[in-house]
Write a protein that binds this DNA or RNA. Structure first.
Lengths: 189, 189
DNA sequence: GTCTATAAATCGATAGAC
DNA sequence: GTCTATCGATTTATAGAC
C-alpha cells in the first residue's frame, strides 16, 4: 500500500480543483479548505502555487515523452506506431484524468518550466508528424494532408480527459480499440 | 464599412486576451491598457467583466445552434449532414478564432448564463448523436461505437481554434474538404 | 467618454507561537 | 505540522470631477 506524503496529497487535491475552475481561479485557500487545514499550512510542504502546477504538468509531459521514446525505437510499422500512441494516451489519461486538464489548458501559466514544457510538446508532435509522413511515403496511409491527419488525431487524444471519466463502463483496452478503428479507418462504411 | 461601437471594441480586445491567458487571469486593467484607456473607463460601456465573457460565449453558442437547426431541417443524408457540421465549425471558427478559446475553456466561469449555455451545448451534442445513430441504422456508417465516433469528431472540431490561425495558407473551403476526408474515411489506405 | 481617487474584498506568501 | 495574524499587492467596481 502506497503511503501518500502530504505534498502528494496537496498536488492530488489541487489537480481536481484545477480541472474544475482552472489554475488561475483556484486559490490556496480553496485547496486548504478541501484538505481541512489553513492556507498557511500548505507552505510547510510546498514552496508556491506555481510549484504545484509545474509538478502536475511536467510529470505528465515527461510520461508522454518517455512513452514516445519507446515507440520510436521500435521496428513497428507506421500504423502500429500510431496504434501504440493511441494506447499511450488512453493509459496516461486514465491514470490521471484531472491532470490532463491542466496539461491542456493551464500550461501557459507555467513560469520557470514553460520553455522546457514547450520543447517536450514540440518534440512530441514532431515525432507523430514523422510517423505519419513515413506512413504516406510507404503507401500505408492515404496521400492526404499530413497536417490535417496530425491535427485530427492529436485533438481527439488530447480531449480524452473530458470524456473518459463519464464513460467508466468502457475499459481502457476496449476504448483504445474503438478509438483506433475510428481514427484510422474512419466512420463511413 | 462597419463602424465598431466602443463596447464591441472592448469585447474584441478581451477575446484576444482571454485566449492567451484565460478569463480568470485577465484583469480589467489588462483590457484597458491594450485599448489605451484606464480600467474605470471600461465601465462606461459594459457593466461587468462577466458581461464580456457572456457576450463572447453565448453569441458563439447561438451561432452553432442556429446552424444546427438549418442542418437538421434538411433532407440530406446522414453523411451529408455530418459534412455540413464540419463546414459549420470551420466557418464559425474562422470568423472568431479567439472567441472559440473562451467557449471551450472558460464556459464554467459563466454565472447567470451558465445553465442556458449548458442546455445549448447538450442539445447540440444530442443532434449530432442522432445523426450518427441514423447513419448506422441506415447502413451508411460503420457499426462501431457511436459515442466514440461522436467524441472523436467533436474533439477535432472543437480544437480547430488552436490550429486555424497558424495555418492561414489553407483556406476554409479546402480545410473543410480535408477534414471531411480524414474524419469520415480515416487515414489508412 | 475618460479621468483620479478610492472602497471593499481577496490574493499569495511570511512570521512566529504552539 | 498546523495555527493565528498580518503584510503588501492586486482585484472588480463605484463616485464624482472634467
Amino acid at each position: 500500500m502506497k503511503v501518500e506524503t502530504r505534498k502528494e496529497e496537496i498536488i492530488k487535491t489541487s489537480t481536481i480543483l484545477f480541472q474544475k475552475k482552472g489554475y488561475s481561479a483556484v486559490t490556496m485557500r480553496d485547496i486548504a479548505k478541501v484538505m481541512g487545514i489553513k492556507a498557511a499550512s500548505l507552505y510547510n510542504h510546498i514552496n508556491s502555487k506555481q510549484e504545484i502546477l509545474s509538478n502536475i504538468i511536467i510529470s505528465l509531459a515527461e510520461a508522454f515523452t518517455e512513452g514516445m521514446t519507446t515507440i520510436m525505437s521500435s521496428n513497428d510499422s507506421s500504423i502500429d506506431k500510431l496504434s501504440s500512441i493511441v494506447k499511450l494516451h488512453v493509459d496516461i489519461t486514465s491514470s490521471n484524468t484531472s491532470g490532463m486538464a491542466s496539461l491542456n489548458n493551464d500550461w501557459m501559466h507555467l513560469e520557470e518550466d514553460l520553455d522546457y514544457y514547450l520543447k517536450l510538446r514540440l518534440d512530441y508532435e514532431d515525432n507523430i508528424r514523422q510517423i505519419i509522413e513515413q506512413g504516406i511515403s510507404s503507401n500505408q496511409l492515404q496521400d492526404s494532408n499530413a497536417e490535417v491527419m496530425l491535427f485530427s488525431m492529436l485533438s481527439t487524444l488530447r480531449s480524452l480527459y473530458i470524456w473518459i471519466p463519464s464513460k467508466e463502463d468502457l475499459d481502457p483496452f476496449e476504448l483504445a480499440e474503438n478509438l483506433n478503428k475510428v481514427l484510422l479507418t474512419g466512420i463511413i462504411k
